[in-house]
Amino acid sequence: MKNTPPSIIALDGPAASGKSTVGRRLADSLGFLFFDTGIMYRAVTWIALEHDMNLHDETAITELAQNAQIDIRQPTQNDGRACDVVIGGKDVTWDMRSGNVDANVSVVSAYAGVRKALSEQQRRIGMRGRVVMVGRDIGTVVLPEADLKLYMDASAEERARRRYKEIVDRGEAADYDEILKKMIERDRLDSTRAVAPLRPADDAVILDTDTMNEEQVYTHILEMCK
Rank of each mutant, 00 (worst) to 15 (best):
D147C: 14
W94F: 15
E120D: 08
I39M: 14
G135K: 07
R73E: 06
V86Q: 04
L33C: 11
A117K: 03
F32C: 08
E145S: 12
A43T: 05
V114F: 06
D84K: 11
H51Q: 15
G99E: 10
V85E: 02
A110Y: 02
V132S: 07
V44R: 07
S29M: 10
L30Q: 12
H56S: 08
G129E: 10
G99T: 08
N100T: 13
L148N: 14
D57M: 06
R123W: 02
E63S: 14
Q66L: 12
I61E: 01
S119R: 01
G89T: 00
V132P: 05
K90A: 00
L30C: 11
T76L: 10
D79E: 07
A82Q: 12
N54W: 04
V44H: 03
V107Y: 01
A146N: 08
I72Y: 08
V142A: 14
I138T: 04
D153E: 09
F34K: 06
V101R: 00
E145Q: 14
S29H: 15
D91H: 08
T45K: 02
V85G: 04
S106A: 15
A103K: 15
Q122W: 06
L49F: 11
G113Y: 01
T59C: 12
D137M: 10
N100K: 14
T59Y: 09
E63V: 04
E58Q: 13
V107C: 05
T62G: 03
S106H: 13
A112E: 13
V105C: 05
V85N: 07
M40P: 01
W94N: 14
Q122R: 09
D147R: 13
M133V: 09
T59P: 00
Q69H: 08
L33S: 12
L150E: 05
A82Y: 10
W46C: 04
I125D: 10
M40A: 01
S98M: 04
V101W: 00
Q66H: 11
G135E: 03
D71F: 04
N78F: 09
L30M: 10
L118A: 09
A103H: 09
V22H: 14
G38D: 11
V141G: 05
V105P: 04
A112N: 06
M133A: 12
D79Y: 12
V105S: 03
C83R: 12
T76V: 13
